[in-house]
Design a protein around this nucleic acid. Structure first.
Lengths: 332, 332
DNA sequence: ATGAAAGCGCTAACAA
DNA sequence: TTGTTAGCGCTTTCAT
């Protein structure tokens, strides 16, 4: 293994000088710098990251915690983070576990081991608040993405879930729908709650009665729920369903079709997120677009800023959603 | 920050003893061990990973290189890796970049920096062979997953792409189809080549003429290609299309529907991979299932073994595919 | 079974 | 502008 000593020897300078040119931390005479650079190239030297980390307490790596890598919502967010992190010579470490608790404790351990310089937390559920507080009190650079936290003051970048849902509902109402059902996602998720509230308020403002069903954030649950809904006589027939995520909208639409009904002729459907397959020709889902890539980029940028300027006050960025009108909503 | 010295002091032992109990590397008197453990708990001590890494040249982290995290094929593979790695106290670092070259050089840099203890490479294209060879010569623990390499002897775990494609083609032929078109994926990918060969051989064996079209591994390209195919008069009408990945099959099916034809009544379609949405009710794609999760698990296991037993000869695991018959293929 | 101490490769304080 | 050197927190050799 080639070390800084080898470079120093070959270039006829001290290890300090090598370090200076490596990190640009002090002016170095051009001749010496040249020699050092040549030596580095000749021996194909790469600084050891553990040694660096031990000295400087920085590892150039930041952690991204997501609930489920399998959920097509996250990869783009991760990509966004990665793009800006990479530009700044940081590496992204992804933490993803179906067991919420496991995941957080893992990350906290790594933080305490000094492996991470900062973390980005994506869409945790409200039950994590305690862990979050602990992290916050450690004063460890952390930003929350895609989640709004009322009770705890942490940096965050989120999407305006409320107004996206409000706009989506208004769209349906504008089309003449009155009996609009909302499928909510995972119960504890603030994202779901905000979206639900946007829907409820839009309904009430228009003198309509909100009606919430459980979609549990999954295709399957939404599918069965829809089946039940359609076959339940006591249910006044809904003319539109607002699914609080695209995945759920897919389940809804598939169930509708199974029953010999069609979207949007019999039932209008609107989703939320705008996953990549929502624009496919066979789907053409009208939905509320969430700028996931941008969310990731902004989160990473904010984190980087915090890491360089610890004293800065807390930031709360809110990105806007966009209603994407495709072909799953008809006027009544 | 709590260090090993603090523990040693509090427990009235040497730092060596603390290290021994921490790593179980030497027998320690039960009394002392108890004291040490109490001290660790009391001070809430966690060993610093950089210091450990510097000393022991191990970082308990391994890298997974994938082409595109956005491709729904990979998350499950990553999950599989993560599951076994986590059980063995390793962390997974995901490298994913659309620019192939960038990605590899990044990983190689990290290897040389000593950040990684091993790497798993997923589905690279043939143009990476040089980088791969370099890695191989470094004798750095590496396993290739979902890729078959002829010219270079590296550990690998792959799926039997050839026979999966062969079986899929036979299925179509068994249904009476003769005019079966194969949509190939990304050109340089060995995976695509193997699948194509399986198709070609099955066709020839049955006295049929193979016909390959470019699907480029994407929904869009397959969509347009299918449109062209259907509207091209010179093309004798195909009765079945074998897409070498599900994503491409989706594009094919959507294009077919756009033309007023239907699957499987007018054209049978079969995919490859079995992505999560392939089983959705509106899709029900007949496909060749690739055990992605298992692929990841086996790759991680193999890597771990290599890391502990460097001298072991090269391993080449081949997992089997499974033909999943759903509803997109009709008898002719 | 245990402790003293060297040293992993690097950065940066201090001295020149 | 440059060099000497201490020391980051840990593992492990050597001695006991």
């Amino acid at each position: 293994m080639v070390t800084i000593k080898d470079i120093a020897k070959l270039a006829n300078v001290s290890t300090a000088t090598v370090s200076y040119v490596l990190n640009n931390t002090r002016p170095v005479h051009p001749d010496k710098e040249k020699k050092v650079r040549e030596a580095i190239k000749e021996l194909n030297y790469v600084p050891n990251s553990a040694a660096r980390g031990l000295r400087s307490k920085k590892n150039q790596t930041i952690g991204l915690v997501i609930t489920d890598i399998t959920n097509p919502f996250y990869p783009n967010l991760a990509k966004g983070c990665q793009e800006v992190l990479k530009q700044n010579d940081y590496t992204l470490m992804m933490y993803n576990s179906d067991e919420q608790h496991d995941q957080i404790s893992n990350v906290v351990r790594h933080v305490r081991e000094g492996k991470l310089d900062g973390i980005i937390l994506a869409n945790l559920v409200t039950t994590d608040i305690d862990n979050l507080k602990a992290l916050n009190e450690l004063n460890f650079p952390t930003v929350i993405v895609h989640r709004n936290l009322k009770n705890i003051n942490m940096d965050s970048v989120v999407v305006d879930n409320y107004s996206g849902a409000h706009a989506g509902t208004e769209h349906l109402i504008g089309l003449g729908h009155k009996n609009i059902i909302f499928f909510q996602g995972i119960n504890e998720s603030p994202v779901t709650i905000e979206r639900k509230n946007g829907y409820i308020d839009a309904m009430k403002t228009n003198g309509l009665e909100p009606c919430i069903k459980e979609g549990k954030g999954s295709y399957q649950a939404s599918y069965s729920q829809t089946l039940k809904l359609i076959n339940d006589e006591s249910q006044k027939n809904p003319t539109a369903i607002f699914a609080s995520s695209d995945i759920m909208a897919f389940g809804v639409m598939d169930a509708v079709k199974t029953q010999g009904l069609s979207v949007p002729e019999d039932i209008s459907v609107i989703g939320y997120d705008d996953l990549f397959m929502s624009s496919w020709n066979s789907i053409q889902l009208t939905t509320v677009r969430v700028p996931t890539f941008e969310l990731g980029k902004q989160a990473a940028r904010l984190l980087l800023r915090k890491m360089n300027n610890d004293s800065e006050k807390k930031n709360h960025l809110v990105l806007q959603t966009e209603l994407i009108i495709r072909k799953t909503c008809n006027p009544l």
